[in-house]
Design a protein around this nucleic acid. Structure first.
Length: 486
DNA sequence: TTTTGAGTTGTTCGA
DNA sequence: GTCGAACAACTCAAA
């Protein structure tokens, strides 16, 4: 009796190591055909943005090379996933399909349909957790409901976690039963044929900042834990310092999983379990919480979790929005963040809060517009985290910022970039501005502007809004949606 | 069921 | 300059 092959469908789990679905496929007994499908029709309203596609291109290229070293060929396809999988099943005679789960609403819908279709056809279909510490349905409060507050959510998670997670056996340990044969056997495409790279050369500097792929992720993790993990709580808020992990895009594409990070920390710290309650691990917890919320409240990608915000008086302001996207608001810390995003496909977390607060509170432009811009420009764009982050900033989400928490872009700059090093890196026209003016350059007297080689209002804009006035206006708008109608 | 304490990341004002 | 209080009311989670 010959054993028919099995398909392993790569999605947002672009790694070989500790990949539960892949490992299970390799253990099945049949030879394994690895496949990647570009299925934009399945992504609903959230087709991956330009920066994300750039990352995906390089991550797939890297995965392809790695599989080649292992003696396997990645079959790259394009089209609706169900149709492509059907073709693959017919061509290969596969008897089983394996994948790791995703949690976006439209993807859950698509994958459920695919699963029941093939089960009806008499195939085996197996899906796994390759992306989360705990899946959204594995955590609930004592009333059996999903959590809406982070602290009790994470506390509950931590009470239910092992010291180490079991590691999925690697392909070598599984005997590497890859399907042999050229990609053309299944009419596979080159990664290039997916046209993932931007048409305009906007990504010129991305490759200076990033090494997409499993090896880059592992290296990044090693360096972060070796150098910055210990001082994370102290340094993570200072964007001029290399205080953060920069693992977010690697995590989004599954080049490394949170369970691998967990196990790595457990290994590094041995008996000393203090790391479990560290600020960094809590940030991993926020990623989990974001997935928990997206799964249980799928509408939140476009609608506020707190319904009273449906009535919030957002402004239409295309000029203001444009100044925000371009990094030309006249507030140096905001502009630096937006320019870092444009240049590198990433923005420091402190800056994400500052620029988000500025868009929704100072310009009073809807958080959805900001979420869309981030979606298109972030290499780590993730529907769960992006939705949570923007609703949090706008005050309309879970654990939202209180209405009165309106970031002052001058104070935030002075607090978290005291020497202006970060601002000067990204807003180069302010390079020679004395430090006492770096976060409020409009206060520079004419003589100082001359010495600094910059004319405010000519070489660098005046503030698009006055902070105090914008603050008052935001407070009034928030007052207007109060439940008591006062 | 009712009650109680608490809730990522802040700013401003006045003493 | 520093410090504490005020800034809404609500909802969540658990006792």
């Amino acid at each position: 009796m010959s054993i028919r092959p099995v398909l392993f469908w790569f999605r947002q789990d672009l790694r070989i190591a500790d990949n539960p679905g892949l490992s299970a496929a390799l253990a099945h007994g049949g030879s394994v055909i690895p496949i990647y499908i570009q299925d934009e029709s399945g992504e609903g309203d959230w087709v991956p943005g330009a920066a994300s596609r750039w990352w995906l291109h390089h991550s797939l290229t890297s995965l392809n090379a790695r599989l080649g070293q292992l003696g396997a060929t990645l079959i790259v396809k394009k089209g609706p996933a169900l149709k492509v999988l059907q073709e693959m099943v017919e061509l290969s005679g596969a008897q089983a399909i394996y994948w790791n789960r995703r949690y976006e609403p439209s993807i859950i819908q698509r994958d459920s349909a695919i699963k029941s279709f093939f089960l009806q056809q008499g195939l085996e279909v197996h899906s796994f957790n390759g992306a989360l510490i705990l899946e959204p349905w594995e955590v609930q409060n004592k009333a059996g409901q999903p959590f809406k507050v982070f602290t009790p959510f994470w506390k509950t998670c931590l009470e239910n976690l092992p010291q180490r997670f079991p590691v999925a056996p690697s392909p070598a340990e599984n005997g590497s039963r890859w399907h042999k044969g050229p990609a053309r056997e299944f009419a596979g495409l080159d990664v290039d044929a997916l046209s993932l790279l931007p048409a305009i050369p906007w990504d010129a500097h991305f490759s200076d900042c990033w090494t997409p792929g499993e090896a880059g992720a592992a290296e990044n993790l090693r360096i972060f834990v070796g150098r910055a993990f210990g001082a994370y709580k102290m340094q993570r808020d200072f964007p001029a310092l290399p205080g953060t992990s920069r693992l977010s895009p690697h995590l989004h594409f599954g080049e490394v999983s949170p369970r691998q990070i967990w196990n790595f920390l457990a290994e590094v710290f041995h008996e000393d379990t203090g790391w479990i309650r560290s600020q960094y691990v809590a940030e991993i917890g926020w990623r989990e919480f974001a997935h928990h919320l997206l799964y249980h409240f799928p509408d939140t990608t476009s609608r506020p979790l707190r319904p009273e915000f449906e009535a919030f008086p957002w402004r239409e302001d295309s000029a203001g929005y444009r100044s925000w996207t371009r990094g030309l608001t006249g507030y140096p810390i905001v502009d630096a963040g937006m320019r870092e995003l444009w240049a590198t496909g990433w923005m420091h977390n402190r800056l994400r809060m500052i620029v988000a607060s500025f868009l929704v509170k100072h310009l009073r432009i809807s958080w959805s517009a900001g979420a869309r811009w981030f979606w298109d420009t972030l290499v780590d764009a993730d529907l769960a985290s992006n939705t949570l982050g923007w609703q949090w900033a706008a005050g309309c989400g879970a654990d939202a910022a209180p209405y009165f928490r309106i970031f002052n872009p001058i104070l935030q700059g002075e607090k978290f970039d005291p020497d202006g090093v970060y601002v000067k890196k990204w807003v180069t026209e302010l390079k020679k501005v004395p430090v006492q003016y770096i976060h409020k350059p409009w206060e520079m007297p004419a003589g100082v502007q001359k010495l600094a080689g910059v004319r405010i209002g000519v070489d660098y804009p005046e503030p698009v809004v006055d902070h105090a006035a914008a603050r008052q206006s935001a407070l009034a708008a928030l007052q207007s949606i109060r439940k008591d109608g006062a």
